[in-house]
Design a protein around this nucleic acid. Structure first.
Lengths: 350, 350
DNA sequence: CTGTTAGCGCGTTCAT
DNA sequence: ATGAACGCGCTAACAG
């Protein structure tokens, strides 16, 4: 038991970074007893426990997460893996998750999916090496269905997926159906008698493809065909430039060919509205415009901007709930929580 | 040397989670030699090194960060501490930092300052327990000047501060002078002959106070006095409502009393522009409007919105550079990097 | 240049 | 209910 006796005389102004041994000697018990007080308190006599707790409080003892993890204990660490590129919403939700978990006593690692599959596997491997207890993963791509991925994930005590539709995987999931939002917009356009809808902002990835399909199919069910898409390059800071120059071209005809525009972000929608209005068109009388994200400013614009609300707050709470629940109860039944994204009607939608 | 001989027959499909000992025995050297190949390669003979590297590649060996940290080695972990509440820019910059550092082989913990001083100290203590190598801290408040805080920070191999002005602290700093942005806007208003400026969006904290002062003082230097502030509650999702209802009241006079408005965010600026235009005022002819943040959409609005660019990208790069540099060279001279926030002129500014 | 020894701080058997 | 001993995987201080 090699501890410097400095720590006993608490008058010294050192910061002895107390270890479990210090507490043990101060409480006059063995190191194991101290450890047990924190890991499985029920096995320790109340009197002993009190002694230990008092001593640890005096020394401001907190067990070391690294040592704990190395020895097979809990690390209070969570990994949050999101796709940051081409996803402006990623920082917001991952940040909120981190802050929320911090309040629960967990520390989060935030990482980004990378371009290739292998290096993303590496991230999960490193999570495992660091004895992370749980991971929260944005699961929009289909990578997760790979066996390798699944196996790596299964190592963790808790896994929560943030998906856009229920995946056939044995993990807790928060399902945020953005497609529902797109369908609702399509329905609204139909209901208002719009005849020439338009969709702006498709990227090249799978998720974007799904959105387009949902929107188009919903329109087709009502007998409307959509004429054209204005594609947007992924992960490009100039995407608004591209969108707007594309839109400009549509004005070369004598009449503007569309009467309803769905934009894949509020940013785009705002710019489109500005452009239309400046060209002498009225929103929503001539053209209806709907955005996506429901930014705070949307309701204060003129006309106020209709949008789809991602329900980020609710999603974060759901994620936290599922995660904490599984950490505390690893063997419980798998849970799914649905949080539909809501179409928010405002003036611009007509 | 207790290692299961399973690992030698690499045909088995187990994932033996190879430890340093496995590599050592396969390469026929001692465990220490293996460790040295990774920590200080220069001390190992080339021939031995190759042997070891080959063995580790075969076993897909990667040293365990937890064990490394516990034994006093490097953990490849960075802490990023920001004020998330009442700061919409926090997720973006912290996210970018994390992604950037991930590419350099570091894993980031992202945390938020909390309301009280003590629990923020706790975060730093936990960083220390987790043997984090470096911390990046948003240093707008004056907490850092407390001795306790300074002492805790000094433990880390690297500390990079993101400040709004140079702090008298022995740490690397990236100075993003937002006050310069405000001053530039004030100068611009003066230059354009505006006589009745207005400032919207002051919160209650110290940082906001400084901004206001910078703006007001700059105006006063030119003989202009600013009539009024429209305060905004911190950390409030309705702040736009409050701003706009405040603005409404100004219209009760026969003439709108201001001819130039500086808004503390682009969100506010957009709403203010919409409001003014709807009331029949012209931007910028009757009233100039400037925002803050320079969102992508700003240049596409009508009129295009003048703003102040935070230079987030550049700041992230600077932070990364200072951090990596110090990690690799802990004893080097302290560095400061200035990244002024730039006033971006556009139509709305007049 | 390489190997031996002794920890880092904690969890987990076993005994008692 | 409590303690002794060992191991988690690695680095540091020596030795050779």
């Amino acid at each position: 038991m090699n501890l410097n006796d400095k720590s006993t005389s608490s008058t010294t102004i050192d910061k002895p970074r107390p270890s479990i041994d210090h507490v043990a000697s101060l409480a006059n018990v063995s190191r194991v007893t101290v450890a047990r007080v924190f890991s499985s308190p029920s096995l320790v006599a109340k009197k002993t426990k009190d002694k230990v707790l008092k001593a640890s409080r005096m020394l401001k003892y907190r067990s070391n997460p690294l040592a704990r993890g190395l020895a097979g204990g809990r690390t209070n660490t969570i990994g949050v893996l999101w796709k940051f590129s081409s996803n402006p919403a990623a920082p917001e939700i991952t940040g909120k998750i981190a802050v929320q978990l911090q309040e629960k006593g967990y520390m989060s690692h935030i990482s980004s999916f990378t371009a290739d599959f292998d290096s993303t596997l590496e991230v999960l491997s490193e999570y495992a090496e660091r004895r992370i207890e749980g991971v929260v993963i944005q699961a929009v791509d289909d990578w997760l269905l790979h066996k390798e991925f699944k196996d790596l994930l299964s190592q963790f005590r808790a896994v929560v997926l943030d998906t856009d539709e229920l995946k056939p995987l044995p993990f807790d999931q928060v399902v945020r159906d953005r497609l529902g939002g797109y369908k609702d917009v399509a329905k609204h356009f139909v209901k208002c008698g719009r005849k020439r809808p338009f969709l702006i902002g498709a990227g090249g990835n799978i998720g974007d493809k799904k959105k387009c399909d949902a929107f188009v199919n919903q329109l087709q069910d009502s007998g409307l065909t959509i004429q054209q898409f204005l594609p947007v390059l992924e992960n490009n800071d100039n995407y608004l430039d591209i969108v707007l120059s594309g839109l400009e071209k549509e004005f070369s005809n004598t009449t503007f060919p569309y009467d309803a525009i769905m934009c894949m972000s509020d940013d785009i929608a705002m710019c489109v509205m500005s452009c239309l209005i400046q060209k002498g068109l009225k929103v929503p009388d001539d053209v209806a415009v709907v955005g996506f994200n429901d930014i705070l400013a949307a309701k204060h614009l003129k006309p106020s901007l209709a949008s789809v609300n991602r329900q980020t707050e609710n999603a974060v709470f759901a994620i936290e709930r599922l995660l904490i629940n599984r950490l505390e109860n690893p063997e419980g039944p798998i849970q799914h929580e649905e949080i539909p994204m809501e179409f928010v009607w405002r003036e611009s939608a007509g």
